[in-house]
């Protein structure tokens, strides 16, 4: 049985002055994931290690963290795929550490909530379902796959200097509703994503897109959002001139 070394950035703001790296030797077996490794440490080496997980299948969004150079979901990252004897793990950036890999997600959720993340239809519901053509529905493919893991948010360099920036996930969610033939709150939501901390802050750096475990075209969606806002907002007035 072979072995890898986990180097984990640990920090408990209640007791530690500053973060430090701790090392753990973990025996590996075929198919083992980084999440399995973290559990091995928690169960056998140090029960105080804190990290989130739930589905262990890459669908619930609990376990995004920085692993060997990039953001990934620990549960779907196989140790063998990293091709390295050391596994370096640290928590997501831009979110306050509560303990070790367990960060305070509230700032992320607040931004998500800001864009009114729910369908706002313009009509009373039909007696049966609202109709939507397969073409209209196709606009929602991929964009609805977002599991709100926060990896994009953590990777975004704009967040380094603008704490209030809404961030990729919230903007993507806004675009999700703009793309939905059933939603009618176009004006209202445009106001919410407008402004200096909104959609215009995106500098098209593509970090978010590179880390997204669902391979969503986030940057592209934000670009579409910008284009639509230009078309809806300014083109009419431009035309008037």
């Amino acid at each position: 049985m072979s072995e890898v070394t986990f180097k984990i950035l640990r920090y408990d703001p209640k007791t530690d002055k500053k973060p430090h790296v701790e090392q753990f030797k973990v025996p590996t077996k075929s198919g083992m994931t980084v999440l399995d490794g973290l559990y091995y440490i928690q169960e056998h080496l140090d029960g105080s290690l804190a990290f989130r997980s739930s589905c262990r299948a890459g669908v619930c969004g609990s376990c995004a963290m920085h692993i060997n150079g990039t953001y990934r979901l620990a549960c779907e990252t196989q140790i063998s795929a990293l091709n390295s004897a050391t596994i370096k793990v640290r928590p997501m950036a831009h979110l306050p550490v509560m303990k070790d890999l367990f960060v305070d997600m509230d700032p992320f959720w607040e931004k998500f909530k800001h864009i009114k993340p729910y369908l706002i239809p313009g009509d009373e519901p039909a007696e049966k379902e609202r109709l939507q053509t397969t073409d209209e529905r196709a606009h929602l493919d991929r964009i609805i796959d977002c599991i709100l893991c926060g990896a994009c948010f953590a990777s975004c360099t704009v967040n380094n200097y603008d704490e209030e920036y809404l961030g990729p996930a919230a903007l993507l969610k806004a675009q999700r509703f703009f793309s939905d033939s059933r939603d009618a709150a176009i004006e209202e939501r445009m106001d919410l994503v407008d402004g200096e901390h909104g959609v215009w802050r995106c500098h098209t750096i593509f970090n978010c897109q590179e880390v997204c475990p669902k391979e969503i075209d986030i940057t592209g969606s934000i670009a579409v959002l910008k284009r639509n806002m230009v078309a809806n907002r300014w083109s009419p007035s431009l035309k008037k001139q």
Partner: peptide
């Protein structure tokens, strides 16, 4: 199920636009 659709669930659709 229709109520979930009214709330925004993006169900896959039939050729005539139903769930």
């Amino acid at each position: 199920v229709r109520e979930m659709e009214h709330w925004g669930v993006p169900f896959s659709r039939t050729p005539d636009g139903k769930i």
